[in-house]
């Protein structure tokens, strides 16, 4: 066999071997980059919820962009705005959820942000969301036993003062800095 043929075969074999490796890597590429981000727990979210979904999805897909998107909203976020939600009474005592502009749903349904294990809570009990000015609003979603802010039963979406107890069944939550 001529030297030339063997050289061509040798290089050809290496090329084919590497081609296989590259094709294999292409197959797994979808695992690394091509992910789909879906938001759970905002099915009842209405317009506000949907907007949040879009922003959250974009933010989750590209973390560097998140900062860029939040920078303009920095002006809206006043000093002293709450940064976390804390469960202070009930079976979930001690649980905290960071407030990052997303809607938080509370209830016994599995897709709630905070799943309440509380016989006196409805499956979709209440939701907490930021309004356009960055104030956090609590809204009762037509629950059986009602949602209480301090001592008053909620009838309309109400802004939450820092540290005010929100009572749902046996669970009490509050917003803290």
């Amino acid at each position: 066999m001529s030297e030339l043929t063997l050289t061509v075969m040798r290089l050809g074999f290496l090329a084919v071997l590497w081609l296989f490796v590259i094709v294999a890597v292409q197959v797994i590429r979808s695992d690394l980059f091509g992910t789909r981000v879906t938001q759970r727990g905002s099915r009842r979210g209405g317009d506000t919820g949907r907007q949040q979904t879009g922003r959250q999805a974009a933010a989750a897909a590209a973390p560097p962009q998140q900062r860029g998107q939040q920078a303009p909203s920095g002006g809206r976020q006043r000093r002293g705005a709450p940064t976390k939600l804390v469960v202070s009474e009930g079976t979930l005592t001690g649980t905290t959820v960071a407030l990052q502009g997303q809607t938080i749903t509370l209830g016994r349904a599995h897709d709630s942000t905070i799943v309440l294990d509380d016989d006196y809570a409805s499956s979709r009990h209440a939701r907490i969301y930021p309004d356009r000015d960055g104030n956090w609003i609590v809204e009762d979603l037509g629950s059986t036993n009602g949602t209480y802010l301090d001592r008053t039963r909620l009838t309309t979406p109400t802004p939450i003062p820092l540290g005010a107890p929100i009572r749902i069944g046996k669970t009490v939550i509050e917003l803290r800095k």
Binding site: R40, T113, V115
Partner: peptide
């Protein structure tokens, strides 16, 4: 009883069977 702090699900785009 569980608290879901991360409300996003990340899944592959492709059809599951390949």
């Amino acid at each position: 009883m569980s608290v879901v702090t991360n409300t996003t699900t990340i899944g592959a785009i492709d059809a599951p069977s390949r």
